[in-house]
Design a binder for these strands. Structure first.
Lengths: 244, 244
DNA sequence: AAGTGGTCTAGACCACCTA
DNA sequence: AGGTGGTCTAGACCACTTA
């Protein structure tokens, strides 16, 4: 077995791990085809059935997709917005394709107690803080604070974020880490002053309700790696979550 | 094969269907053990591997759970609140166990265009409308409008709802239908007058932001069967969604 | 010790896509 | 026609639970 260096893990889990690593190393790009089940079985020293089980789970994890008769392919990087989408007030129908992301800045701060606990860090651990503004047809609709453990991503560079497809794409390309959403929490609040000004909500109509979203994301191994807080204006758009 | 009456479906899907039906008919109660994989394979005329695949998917669907060395068991009915929970302002830690449901009434109305489309009904199709109030430590925190296709659930009786574990439990017990959440949509709004009064938000402080939640649920076959609209007060509690 | 679910294999056949 | 994923089988061994 070529994969037996890892111990006490089922063979299919080792196959998953090897494939995840080879994907992170950039062996294939999005929509590239993987070798067939039989070829992988030969390469990795497992049976075709075991490789199938690993591939099935990687599809469930969102890393791959399959097409009957054609092959198994690398799934594209998910957008920062995650599995969720912004939609118009109509019920679920329309696409959020006009959504644009604007990078506002990168700074450092120390973790509050709550956030340190959520990210499983010690108190006051150093964090990166990325601020993003989302626009829909040019109008600001949401503002993000993205907090990342600075020791894990110590070489993070603002230039990467300014020019990339997004924070999640940068983490995947520069650090080989793929995020999945663990938990989201929703509140309705009156929009605070600072966020109101960044979202272009001006003086007299300052009493605007906002959807306040907290989101914890983790790597595929379950390690929490991103804390994100978002204020959304929902006059024109609603925030939707699809299940399964 | 005892299950081959259905055609052109993979054998494991037929096994799933048979087991779902037997569960809906009340052959087992929550936490009862199913027969072993080998016994089911014998009963149903499939191999143990095929039965395993069916059981694995039913576990993924949330209908069953398994324990190594002990057996396969029927999962309990999910609460109306669904996979989601109400939590205190602390980040994700606490349990929503003090949540109580109060049945306010059952009435009939005709579907609006939006809702008819979401439920895949014709315009003005008759609907049941169930109103529910949620309390947390006695204080009202959320108000539900539940819309159900009246022709599908024509014998629905208010007495069932008043005395049961909830709408979803009633539908499962009386109609053999199990719901799963398809899609949820979130907005922040100022609380409308009628809802404010039902939630006990009194006169002068009437300008309260509320979390407005729309939810579409479907049977396990994908047929949309429930439309639910909820206003949540999020001063004390936030609404959370867990993924995977 | 017996029974259960969990993993793994080898081989077969089918449905679908591409060339 | 040949390659791919999708289904199905039969048999083996392991890890865990229960009595």
């Amino acid at each position: 077995m070529t994969v037996n260096a890892l111990k006490r893990q089922p063979l299919y889990a080792q196959v998953k791990q090897v494939l995840r690593q080879r994907m992170a190393e950039g062996e294939w790009r999005a929509h590239d085809a993987l070798p067939s089940e039989w070829d992988l079985a030969g390469e990795l020293g497992a049976s075709q059935g075991t490789v199938r089980k690993a591939l099935t789970e990687l599809v469930a994890d969102g890393l791959l997709y399959r097409e009957q008769g054609r092959g198994t392919f690398v799934a594209p990087v998910p957008s920062d917005w995650g599995e969720s989408s912004l939609l118009t007030p109509g019920l679920f129908q329309e696409q959020p394709d006009e959504l644009a992301r604007e990078f506002l800045g990168l700074s450092r701060l120390n973790a509050s107690e709550d956030i340190a606990a959520a990210l499983k860090l010690r108190r006051l651990a150093p964090l990166w803080r990325v601020r993003l503004l989302w626009r829909w047809h040019a109008a600001p609709v949401a503002l993000d604070d993205v907090l990342l453990p600075a020791e894990t991503f110590d070489t993070l560079d603002a230039r990467w974020l300014r020019s990339s497809e997004g924070v999640h794409a940068t983490l995947q390309q520069r650090f080989g880490v793929r995020l999945k959403v663990v938990c989201e929490q929703f509140r309705a609040e009156m929009l605070p002053r600072e966020e109101a000004s960044l979202l272009g909500v001006t003086g007299m109509v300052a009493d605007v309700p906002a959807l306040c979203l907290l989101r914890l994301s983790a790597g595929m191994d379950g390690q929490p790696l991103e804390w994100r807080q978002r204020y959304c204006l929902t006059h024109q758009l609603a925030y939707t979550v699809k299940h399964d």
